[in-house]
Structure formats: structure tokens, C-alpha cells
Nucleic acid binder design. Structure first.
Lengths: 192, 192, 192, 192
DNA sequence: AATGAATGAGCCTTCATTCAT
DNA sequence: CATGAATGAAGGCTCATTCAT
């Protein structure tokens, strides 16, 4: 009999619901408050106990991995796109993610520090390989263009994003930054 | 006779030594651990009590202002340099500072947030004005080159720096980033 | 196995015990040391960690509200008392509370400062209304007697209490003070 | 040769100036911020070093004694006043002091706690003796009126003063309190 | 398996008091 | 004697992590 004074323990069946709620809350708070947002704030926003968070995600990194796995998956899906526009779309999405979720980048940094053989950057490089090759073949990228350049450019955009105190100016700041990159990094379409 | 349990009070004459010790410790720890390093760690590293730090620098920003005022001064001195190479030197020094002391950039961000009329960015833009004008006249920068582009580029370099978990790779990562910027941003000379 | 270095985590079931322990410790220390007693002293006296105190009572005022809500409730119960003696009992209890728990008064002052629409004084005035009306009707209070007079008299008794350094003399000092008030404020019965 | 970097050490001749400056600052800050105002705030307001304050007044009590000795002296002068109005003036001045300088009362309390044979209250009682005797003889105070009643009444006024969060209402609150005291305590004249 | 409370270390800040010059 | 800096204890608050139920 559920106590009238405590929340319902909904049992094992709720586990995946809880996990999803934590992930959604984490994504939202990572985006709003950054990667270092207090974990208890995430649990609270998810409407679950602290224990649930730790059960599903023993460390902050585990949680961030799960949150941003979706980002990886989305990027990989986009990379599988065949057209000659593939690289452009991928780049634009990377920029959007960096702007909207700087925590994505911070997570990768944290992971590389904590887990020496974390493969995030390699995974990103790998998914960029083929679209970039096609761009080179199509002449929309120079022969020397390399996935590492793209990852570096993402880090550059990240730098502009996190040093902008006024969110209303972030887009303009990022546009100025993109303007400094080589032309083969397509700019963000207006209003995008 | 100084107590064996408390540190010696070296008297007011030590004030400037202590201030200098705090500044040195702060510079070192800002460089090593970033702008958000605990203030008590700085006091400890300087070999002074907490109170000394607060007496000299009531807030973290006051401390960072004092530490990085030297950076501003150095850059302004460099900017007063005449020759057509002025902008190149300034840019290289900005990059070095950003790499060695990412906290410099973080301080500016914090100041802009906390003190709406903080003039750091304007001061940087102002000192870039003249060297950049000369560079444009000498044809080593395009007519459209603007101090705001330079500040944006610094933020981009910052992004690369703080996302590099392995300090041994920072230089290579920054070089790759500089390679993506327009040619009028001179690269760092080898071994520099 | 609980560590020998850390206290036992008695689990959520202990929550209400802990809350009660904090309240009891707070009441005791408020009475002994006044409203400004360090919060960590309260946590220590309650045998709980700092966090527990902050979890249950995020601010000093929250804690004091909880402690002194009992006082309000007791006074309201007393006020519901019918007979013509109602006001006399209420007054005597108010005096006792003020003497034993000057922090009660200090809490109301703090609340008025921190929360402009704190209703403590209005609540006290309201509960006095009816008993005082009956006292006026019974001729034991003058027609002009007003709840505000009663609250003022409580503040006067408070003044005598907190300026008495020797607790053994507090009763005598308060009796002298009551002797200066109009007769419709019944004195404390001897030995009371 | 006075250093250009530190304030002038004005030598022994300045001692009494400094003492006076500290007293003036202390009176002002005691009145504004209460008896527990930080001592370094007093030194700062007086424009002297901490050491000066401690040299002249080793403890807070020593400082408060010196500040409020003037109050005692003023009251004693007033008490020497012969007319039948003597007590009334004395009482009004006591009330004014209590309202404007609650720290006066707090000092007496602190002194009684710290120095068991502090004679402040006796001194006050003594200076009240004669004026009160005259008032009794003139029929403006009852035969039972006693200096201890007056001191108690001061403590009552103090209670009203320190529990008033809004300084703009202090006068009204005190007037209500005076209205509850026996008639032989003359009220404050309007606008007084 | 979920709950949500407990713990305590850590950091921030203030201020009474001491003391070299 | 004055100066004014140094000290460090104290207290406030937060949050990562653990754990009884």
C-alpha cells in the first residue's frame, strides 16, 4: 500500500521512465546551466530521487554520455546522408549543437581527461571522413581539408560561445567567427 | 617570540611582499587550474592568511584585475611599437597569453557579467586599432580587418586551449587553429 | 558497516526524528542563546549534519517559524477559550513566552524586516481581539484597550527580559515592569 | 621624514585628537548600527588605524564606557537641576537617549555581564534619587515611586525601540508605550 | 528498484585581536 | 605612539555521494 506521505515507489516498471526523465532533465539543464550543473538539480527537475540518478548514471560522465549519445547518433545519421551537401549539413548541425549545448563539448573534454581511451573525438572524426571526402571530390573543400580541422573549428566556435556573456549576442558572435574560417565551412543560413 | 603555532606577523612592511606573493600565486594557480580556482588555495600557495587576500583583493575580480592588468599593460606597450610588424607581434603575444593563461579570457567574461560597464574588451579593441591600421596600410591585412575580428579570433583560440586535455598537445592544437584563420593572422613561429 | 569516522546514516525513516531533534535543539538554543545562535550549533546539538538543518529549514527564519508556530498555535488555542478570564490567561502566557523565549520576539522582528508582508503581528492582534473585547465587556479592561496596546506591552516586557543579565532576577524585573502597566494587564501570579 | 606612501605618524600630540575621533565615530556608529558594530568599522570611520582604537580602548566595553560617559555626565547635570520639573526633564532625556542610542542600554547590559561590579545602574539610580524625591514632594509622583521603576521603564522603552523594524514608526511606537506607563512618567512633548 | 534524507568536506566571507615597523 | 597589515577562528552555505528503508 503506497504511503500517503511519500511518493509512490512505482517499482521496476518505472525504471526506464525514470531513466528517460533524468535524461530529459539533464539535457535541458546542461543546455541552460552548463555541464557543471549540480546533479541534485537534475534529479529534482526529473522528479526522481537522487538515488535513481546515481543508480542509472554513477558519474556525471555516465549521464553526459547517455545524453549526448543522441547527438552522436544524430550526427552519424546525418553523415550517412549521401549528397554532396552532406558535409555542409553536418557542419551546420555541429555548430548548432555547440551553440545550444556547449556542455556537449565540455563533456568530451571531461571524458578525455577522465578516461584516457575515450573515443568520442575519433568517433566524430570518423563520421566526418566520408562527407568530407565527398566535399573534396566535389571541389567544395580543398584537398588538404581534414576531419581534424573540423573538430578544431568546432572547438573554436565553442570558445566564442562560452565567452559571450549575453545570450542575445551569441548568434552574431558566432557568425563573425564563422566569417573568419575558410570558405569551405559553410556559414549558418540567416534566421537559422 | 613568535608562537610555534601561529605564523609570524611580519608587520606592515611585509604588505607589499604579501601582495606580490598573492599576485604571483594567483597568476600561477589561475594558469594551472583556471579562473575558478579556490581563493583559499591561492592564499595557501602565497603563504598568507585568508584575510590578507581579502584585504588586498576584496573579490575574485579585484584579484584577477590586478593579475591581468600586467597583461593589459604589456599589450599596450607592444601596441605602441611602431613598425609594420606591430600587429603581428601583438597577435602572437595575445595567442601566447590565451594559451598560457586562459583565465585571462575567463576573467574578462566574468567582469562583463558582473560589471556591465567593464571596459576590458574596449581597451583591447583600442590598443589593436592603430597596429591594425598600419597593417592594413602595409597591405598585410585586408581593408575589412577589424579589431573585433581579432578579439573573436582570440576567443576562438581560447576555445581550442580549454578543450585540450593534454597540455603537451596544446601548441599543436593551437597551430592547427591558427592555420584555419585568415592569413593576416600571422602563425606562431616554430619553437616559439 | 558504518564507518567509525562518520555518523550512521539512519535513512529516511529518521527524517521526522531528525526534524524534531532540530526543532527541539533550536528551541532550546534560541531560549538559551537568543535568536542569533549559530546554526551549526543547533545542528550539533541536534546531533545531525549541517545539511539536514538546511534541508529542513533553508533559512534561519524557516527554522524559527517552525519553532514558534507552536507558540502561535498555543496562543490561538488559548484565545479560543471562552470565559471572561480569557484575556488574563492569554496575557500571562504571552509574558511567560517572552521571558522564556525572547527569540520569539526577535524572530518576529527579523521576519518583518526580511518579509515585508509577514503576518505575525497581525495574527497576534487577531487572536487578541475577541478575548480583549470580552474583557472590555466584563469591565476588566477599559473601553479604549486595544490589541496594539497588548503587543506594545509585550515588547516592553521583552525589553526588560533582554536587559537582565542575571536570569535569577528576570522574574523580579518583569514583575516590577508589570507593576508599571495599567491594571487591566493582570500580574503574574506568585510562584507562577 | 614621513613616508610618501603611508599616512603621517603625527606623534604623541595627535593622541587626544585620535581619541576624540574614535569616540565621535563610535557614537555615530553605535547609534546607526547598534552596539555590536564591527570595531574596524569604527576605526575606519575615525580615520585611524586599528591599533589606535585598541590602544585607547582595549575592549569594546572600554570604548562604550567612554562614549556613554558623556551620557551619564549629561544626565547627572540634568539631575542637578533644582526645579520641580527636574524629574520630567530627566525622564524625557532618558527616553530620547534610549530611542536614539539603544547601544547605551546594550552597553550597560554587556557591562553587567562582563564586570559583575559595574556600577552603571547604581549611578543612574543615584542621579534619579533626588529629582524623584522632589517630584514625590511636589505631588507629581506617588509616594511609592522609586528609581528602580524608572530604570525598568527605560528598559521597557528600549524593548519597544529595538523591536521596531521601521525607524519611521519608532516615535509612534514609543508614544504608545509611554501611554501605558503611569502618569507620573511625563509623555514626550509633540514634535519633540 | 526507488526514495529521498543524511553526511560532511569544502569554499566563502567576516572580524576580533595581535604585532612589526 | 601610530600605523595598518596579518592572522585565523568562526560561521554560513552548497553539493557530491552514500545509504536505510
Amino acid at each position: 500500500m503506497p504511503s500517503s506521505r511519500t511518493r509512490h515507489n512505482r517499482g521496476p516498471a518505472a525504471a526506464s521512465d525514470n531513466r528517460a526523465a533524468v535524461l530529459a532533465a539533464a539535457r535541458s539543464l546542461f543546455a541552460d546551466q552548463g555541464y557543471q550543473v549540480p546533479l541534485n538539480a537534475i534529479a529534482r527537475a526529473a522528479g526522481v530521487g537522487q538515488g535513481v540518478l546515481y543508480r542509472h548514471f554513477p558519474t556525471r560522465l555516465d549521464l553526459a554520455f547517455a545524453v549526448f549519445e543522441e547527438n552522436f547518433a544524430e550526427l552519424e545519421a546525418l553523415a550517412a546522408d549521401s549528397g554532396p551537401e552532406g558535409f555542409g549539413r553536418l557542419w551546420r548541425r555541429l555548430v548548432e549543437m555547440t551553440v545550444a549545448e556547449a556542455a556537449f563539448v565540455e563533456m568530451v573534454v571531461d571524458a578525455r581527461r577522465a578516461l584516457p581511451d575515450y573515443d568520442g573525438p575519433r568517433r566524430l572524426a570518423a563520421l566526418l571522413e566520408e562527407p568530407l571526402r565527398r566535399a573534396r571530390e566535389a571541389g567544395s573543400a580543398p584537398a588538404t581539408a581534414d576531419p581534424r580541422d573540423v573538430l578544431t573549428a568546432v572547438r573554436m566556435v565553442y570558445g566564442v560561445t562560452v565567452t559571450e556573456p549575453d545570450r542575445d549576442h551569441t548568434r552574431a558572435a558566432v557568425e563573425r567567427a564563422l566569417g573568419l574560417l575558410p570558405r569551405w565551412f559553410p556559414p549558418i543560413p540567416e534566421g537559422g
